[in-house]
């Protein structure tokens, strides 16, 4: 490992041109990730960015770290192999709503349940961008696209609910235009031991422009979103006057004074799941922030620990022990 020196955001920019469409939400995310990497204080050589296929998956080319742009949907499997092989590496996985939840849904589910110590960023723009505008597994029902001219009949995934259903240990959501919030969430994700899942509402300026405007526009954001902050009351609104509290199994809008305190460290993910589906009710604000953050053992640490334990119990294996084993006999 090289001597730790203070790196800045700029140090993580490689000499490659970034080739996303002008105005794409990915630029803001790239900036925030570069800033987060600098703030965490990691060295460049110990970071690996892994991705699948899609606009978001070009991300590794734009980080001056190690990077692996893999095949469609399978990035979680590559990341698992990388992290298990060298737990000293900091592994980030960048995926999209199509890559992560459609072709790669299986792998995403399994990396989350295994709790491999990596950071998963799912850029959700509710559309297929790189293939030029077909509906995705997060497109709302009725969305008209090139392959759904009469409106999509698919019921969409809620990525946060999906991750919680997979028993992910860190689950968060942020918005590409909300830079401060995004940077805070990314740093919290990086600090978490285990799989950190961050859904980022990301605007596709070409094929689904303004998909999140109704909640993300500065003029409406405070009234239309609620930020889940550990140890703080579930309060929202420009005047901080509204709150959310559980009444029985149902969340209700209450006055700020009556709002519940949010605790993402609960062992049970039930409350987080309820919050993740809050905006199914159109009266409710859209939840962002940290839904869940619990500590438990990680897959990669357990894998290494078993090898260490086996070596301790049986001694370090030699080639001779492998070959000259079992019943042997001599022919003269």
């Amino acid at each position: 490992m090289s001597e730790a020196k203070t790196l800045t955001k700029k140090d993580f920019k490689p000499d490659q041109d970034v080739k996303w469409c002008p105005g794409c939400g990915d630029y803001a995310i790239l900036n925030a990730v570069q800033a987060a990497c600098a703030n965490i204080g990691t060295s460049k050589e110990n970071v690996v960015f892994v991705s699948g296929i899609g606009c978001s998956s070009r991300f590794p080319y734009y980080m001056d770290t190690y990077g692996f742009h893999t095949i469609h949907g399978r990035a979680p499997a590559f990341a698992t192999g990388i992290k298990a092989s060298n737990p000293d590496l900091t592994v980030w996985l960048v995926t999209g709503d199509g890559d992560g939840l459609s072709i790669g849904g299986n792998h995403l589910a399994h990396v989350l349940r295994r709790n491999v110590d990596i950071n998963v960023l799912l850029f959700n723009n509710e559309i297929y961008g790189l293939t030029k505008g077909q509906y995705s597994p997060t497109s709302p029902r009725g969305r008209r696209t090139k392959t759904s001219p009469m409106g999509s009949v698919d019921r969409p995934f809620n990525p946060v609910s999906f991750a919680l259903g997979c028993n992910a240990t860190f689950v968060a959501r942020t918005i590409d235009t909300h830079i401060k919030h995004m940077t805070d969430v990314l740093e919290a994700a990086a600090a978490h031991k285990g799989t950190s899942f961050v859904e980022i509402y990301q605007n596709c300026v070409i094929f689904n422009d303004g998909a999140f405007d109704d909640i993300s526009e500065k003029s409406v954001r405070d009234d239309k979103t609620i930020d889940l902050r550990a140890g703080e009351k579930l309060v929202y609104g420009k005047e901080h006057d509204k709150g959310i509290a559980m009444r029985g199994f149902d969340p209700q809008i209450v006055s700020a004074a009556d709002a519940d305190v949010w605790d993402p460290t609960r062992e049970s993910s039930a409350a987080a799941f309820t919050m993740s589906a809050l905006d199914q009710d159109p009266k409710m604000p859209s939840p962002i922030g940290i839904f869940r953050s619990v500590e438990t053992t990680t897959f990669d640490a357990d894998m290494s620990a078993q090898i260490a334990q086996a070596v301790q119990q049986k001694g370090e294996g030699q080639i001779k022990d492998l070959i000259y084993a079992g019943e042997t006999w001599e022919v003269r």
């Binding site: 892994v50 692996f68 893999t70 499997a77 990341a79 192999g81 990388i82």
Partner: peptide, 8 residues
Amino acid sequence: CSAIGASF
């Protein structure tokens, strides 16, 4: 894919 990741 995990094996390729490991080789990387």
